[in-house]
Write a protein that binds this DNA or RNA. Structure first.
Length: 366
DNA sequence: AAGGCGGGGCT
DNA sequence: AGCCCAGCCTT
């Protein structure tokens, strides 16, 4: 069978399937480039089910490019809290300001211009052009990569530049000139619903007859597994440092892990015995604060992309007159009830829940 | 070319 | 415990 013939059959079978089985998702009920943009940024490396609530809340608070551009970054981070990859929120905020300044508040409708907006790469630009502007442009997200790799039985690491280049060419060849809006959503739905990473539902797949991987019975071998580097594990001392009913929090620098979020001071230690010392010395060095004691009150674990952490919680009372004398990072004393006003990392939310559980237990004992 | 960047759900 | 998710950016 010829290449062009296969492509035509894939397109028509895919669209027929999509009309019957495609998902109804919030961002498919609009053609507003701003809303499509917000959804695409949220969906980077994030599941559809996770995004839906954030999508509605975000647009309620920031209904337009100008509303977003005029907001405080902290307010944006607060709405983004818990969604992860916080650079996306910073880029969205800065991107809105770029759009107001450079394009009079309207998202540009060309690939070259979209790629100038922070956080928009080739695939996200392709999605915005296809879905909001109906301009035929390929995308290459995780779904499309997997579907295309199976359709053409591409072996090898799908993240390697060589394979990616082939995938981009094939995705481009498959992308139709007309009706790109439906096609792009259709191929993503197929990847999410049928052509899944593990145990693809080939019996119900509309592309079964055109799929080289299915023909060879390779569908479970593609994508080929990549090498697993085990994540290191860190022991971290975390201080709930109290003074007259208030707690010390600090703001992380915007360029690192959890950038821009607030949290409880925490310091890594090589050994368990060294935890409290690391905390006491760190707080003294970074904030010039001397703590009276540190009482271990609990432990919790948390996983990040490249490492896992065991947090060792310490309750640390300070003298009433103790002051912040240095500011290695922005820092302040806040009442527990004020914590909800700050964007906090998921791990720090866990700490708060743990603390309230502990205080409930203690009040029961008394 | 490789690594950093979250969090949660599924196996 | 490992894998993956509607990727992008920096080095």
């Amino acid at each position: 069978m010829g290449h062009a013939n296969k492509i035509e059959k894939v397109r028509s079978a895919l669209l027929r399937w999509y009309r019957a089985k495609g998902r109804d998702l919030p961002w498919r009920r609009t053609r507003d480039p701003y809303r499509i943009w917000v959804s695409e940024i949220m969906l980077q490396q994030t599941r559809v089910e996770t995004v839906i609530d954030y999508y509605h809340r975000f647009l309620q608070v920031f209904p337009s490019v100008t509303a977003l551009a005029g907001a405080d970054l902290e307010a944006v981070l607060k709405v983004w809290e818990g969604l992860g990859y916080y650079a996306r929120a910073r880029n969205l905020h800065r991107g809105a300001q770029t759009i107001v300044e450079e394009w009079d508040g309207e998202l540009p409708g060309t690939l070259q211009d979209l790629l100038c907006i922070p956080g928009i790469g080739r695939s996200t630009a392709g999605a915005i052009l296809s879905l909001a502007f109906e301009i035929s442009t390929p995308i290459l997200d995780g779904n499309v990569k997997r579907v295309v790799a199976r359709l053409f039985a591409l072996r090898g690491d799908l993240k390697s530049p060589g394979v990616e280049q082939k995938l981009w060419k094939l995705s481009g060849a498959l992308t139709p000139k007309r009706g790109v809006h439906h096609y792009t959503q259709a191929i993503m739905d197929l990847g999410a619903m049928i052509c899944t990473p593990r145990k693809p539902d080939c019996p119900h797949c509309p592309l079964r007859n055109e799929c080289k991987a299915f023909h060879l019975q390779w569908q479970e071998k593609i994508p080929s597994p990549t090498k697993k580097n085990s994540r290191p594990h860190h022991q971290v001392a975390l201080g709930v440092i109290r003074k007259r009913g208030r707690i010390l929090i600090y703001q992380r620098p915007s360029d690192g892990l959890l950038g821009g979020l607030w949290g409880f001071p925490n310091y890594r230690s090589r050994t368990r015995k060294g935890l409290l010392r690391a905390l006491v010395q760190g707080v003294r060095k970074d904030y010039g604060i001397r703590m009276e004691t540190g009482n271990p009150v609990g432990i919790l674990s948390h996983g990040y992309t490249h490492f896992t952490v065991t947090f060792h919680l310490f309750e640390c009372p300070c003298r009433d007159g103790e002051k912040i004398r240095k500011r290695a990072f922005p820092a302040k004393w806040v009442y527990p009830g004020e914590l909800k006003n700050y964007p906090l990392a998921s791990s720090d939310r866990k700490v708060i829940r743990k603390l309230s559980a502990i205080s409930r237990q203690q009040s029961v004992k008394r």
